[in-house]
Write a protein that binds this DNA or RNA. Structure first.
Length: 622
DNA sequence: ATAGGGTTAG
């Protein structure tokens, strides 16, 4: 073998014929190895050879353990880099979401008079999608046509993806319709594109007319339903998929798990978990985290811990998820202990970890600990607090009644507080009746988040508490004028795998009569124990319809009654709500847990309440 | 080289 063949010969002989000393280049897995080869290459005088250097640059630019800056440096030293090298580099920048660089490289390719090939456009178009570069994307489309790749399937699929991401679904559709060879990716991309913008009917139509569905296309449709809260449809599509004997993969499993999470459907979630174990679907880091999250949010910390403890190696998301789970259940100290364990096991925390730790402190009233970790994250981990962290701190102080400190923190933030931060402060004002402060920030919150009806409701409630009915009316009018409606509250309960949903005063349930009778019985019993209805939330409610509904038939009470009817003595009753639990329901639930000797676990918008023997795990701190 | 999944305060 000629160990010193000139570069031109090497290039002509393509990939098979390196000098012996370059054997193994393809198998590099670390930068250290590749750098050794690079110095070999320089010694052999091949550092301008596109073929050899292309391989080196490819590793550096796109491999997991690569080094994009190093790739770029080598690229700059190439006298005549070819299209492959350009493409590879664009792909590298794309992976890092450095969109400007992708586009600049494309411009450079033209300047260098190198002809782009069909591999150039998929990455370029994808870059335009991610960076929402609409003009550039259209130009790229024009170039693609000019260079004659209009009929390249990969480019067409990426065009569809791009136009869908630009919200130009008609153009995505036009590309699709013009394709002579549609593959599974083309169909699936169109389904997801429609779904992304809420056109579920179109997505469904495309899905139905797809000739040979793959698991990815099933999943695209299932995920579409889940994301838009059509859980029933998601479950029935899932069933259909199983009857058609399509093999379920981890993506479908993940989509279904998130449906269970949203519904609080523990039994269903368990079933999917069991199915995954049986079917041999691989428990990768993402799927494990999804499962842990499902158990946390469906109210079973025990099962979540079981899965968490069984993980062979714990990724940062699993830790974050578990800490967040403890936070949500009001187990602040346990969350902090787990965080310490995480640090000991050398898993470096990130900003999300601290959101969870701080929210754990907030939910448990651990003010000193919260203060400590807020400083600690920057000082020991170099993580500068973001708006989420300020939000947690404002919530922590606000909930604890330290409104002045909360306000001071907002004033001293190094950047403009967003709706989240101010909203937390407004919420605290409502809880503690600080009209003056609430009045001063309420308008700002609404200005920053004008389409969130919840903001108006809180402000109106604050005014109502102060008896400022003119302001209540003004706020309500503003909300109505903007076409916003108060989010209707509902409660869900899953029994034998079926989720029932209740709204306050609703009669739609086939067993409504029995349920209402049970509510009456419940209230009868607990009144004997000293329960007195708390009518505060009725008085303050700004929604007329809601105001007329008797407190006693709030959705949560209906769901609990249904649970009492349908489950055996001693069984835990689990409820999920879309809003926060109201004061009266909270009060009543404590009594009910004692009167009927049941543990009642309620997930509200923010956290869990475990009612047991007349008490709640939140200690009335919420 | 292109499609589908996870953790984030109120």
């Amino acid at each position: 073998m000629a160990s010193l063949a000139p570069a031109s010969v090497l290039a002509a002989q393509a990939s098979l014929c390196y000098p012996k000393s370059l054997e193994g280049l393809e198998k590099c897995s670390t930068m250290a190895e590749i750098k050794q080869f690079h110095s070999q290459i320089i010694r052999l005088g091949l550092s301008s050879d596109n073929d050899v250097m292309g391989r080196v640059i490819k590793f550096c630019a796109v491999a997991e353990s690569g080094d994009l800056r190093y790739a770029h440096k080598m690229f700059e030293k190439m006298p005549h880099p070819d299209a492959f090298i350009y493409n590879t580099l664009i792909r590298g920048y794309l992976q890092c979401h450095l969109i400007r660089e992708c586009i600049l490289l494309y411009l450079q390719i033209l300047q260098d008079s190198v002809t782009p090939n069909k591999f150039t456009f998929p990455s370029l178009l994808r870059a335009c999608s991610i960076g929402n570069k609409i003009d550039e994307g259209r130009q790229a489309h024009a170039h693609l046509v000019k260079f004659g790749f209009e009929n390249d399937g990969f480019s067409q699929n990426n065009l569809m993806y791009m136009y869908a991401s630009f919200h130009s679904l008609q153009e995505a559709r036009r590309v699709f319709d013009n394709m002579s060879q549609k593959d599974a990716v083309s169909w699936t991309t169109l389904i997801s594109g429609y779904s992304q913008w809420g056109f579920l009917d179109d997505a469904h139509e495309v899905f139905r007319s797809m000739p040979e569905k793959t698991s990815a296309s099933w999943n695209a449709m299932i995920a579409a339903y889940v994301q838009h809260n059509f859980f029933q449809e998601a479950f029935s599509l899932f069933d259909e998929m199983r009857t058609e004997k399509i093999e379920l993969d981890k993506f479908v499993a993940a989509s279904m798990l998130s449906a269970c999470t949203a519904l609080g459907a523990l039994e269903q979630g368990r079933w999917i978990h069991g199915y995954i174990s049986k079917s041999g679907i691989e428990f990768d880091a993402k799927l494990s985290t999804t499962i842990i999250d499902m158990y946390c949010k469906c109210g079973s910390l025990e099962k979540a811990f079981e899965v968490f403890n069984g993980l062979p190696s714990k990724g940062i998301s699993s830790w974050n998820c578990m800490i967040g789970g403890l936070a949500m259940h009001g187990r602040g100290n346990a969350a902090i202990e787990l965080f310490k364990k995480m640090e000991k096991q050398m898993a470096a925390p990130d900003d999300i970890t601290f959101v969870n730790v701080l929210s754990a402190c907030a939910h448990s009233g651990l003010v000193e600990e919260g203060r400590y970790y807020f400083r600690y994250m920057a000082e020991f981990h170099g993580i500068e607090p973001k708006s989420e962290h300020f939000g947690c701190m404002v919530d922590l102080f606000g909930r604890a009644g330290l409104l002045e400190e909360a306000r001071k923190l907002v004033d001293e933030m190094p950047f403009e507080p967003d709706a989240g931060v101010l909203g937390a402060l407004l919420g605290a004002c409502k809880v503690h009746g600080d009209i003056e402060l609430g009045d001063s920030i309420g308008e700002r919150v609404i200005e920053l988040d004008p389409n969130n009806s919840g903001r108006y409701v809180i402000l109106a409630n604050l005014y109502a508490r102060a008896g400022r009915w003119d302001d209540v009316a003004k706020t309500r009018k503003l909300m109505n004028d903007r076409g916003l409606k108060k989010t209707p509250g509902f409660s869900m309960i899953e029994l034998e795998g079926i989720v029932s949903k209740f709204i306050a005063g609703g009669m739609a349930h086939p067993e409504a009569k029995e349920i209402y009778a049970m509510v009456d019985e419940m209230l009868e019993q607990i009144k004997k124990m000293g329960y007195v209805p708390d009518t505060d939330c009725v008085l303050y409610d700004i929604d007329e319809d809601e105001k007329e509904l008797p407190l006693r038939y709030h959705s949560e009470k209906l769901a609990i009654a249904f649970g009492l009817i349908k489950t055996r003595r001693g069984e835990t009753i689990r409820i999920s709500k879309n809003l926060r639990v109201c004061k009266d329901c909270h009060h009543a639930s404590k009594f009910i847990s004692k009167a009927f000797d049941r543990e009642i676990i309620v997930r509200d918008r923010n956290r869990f309440h475990h009612f047991r023997n007349g008490e709640c795990s939140c200690d009335d701190y919420w």
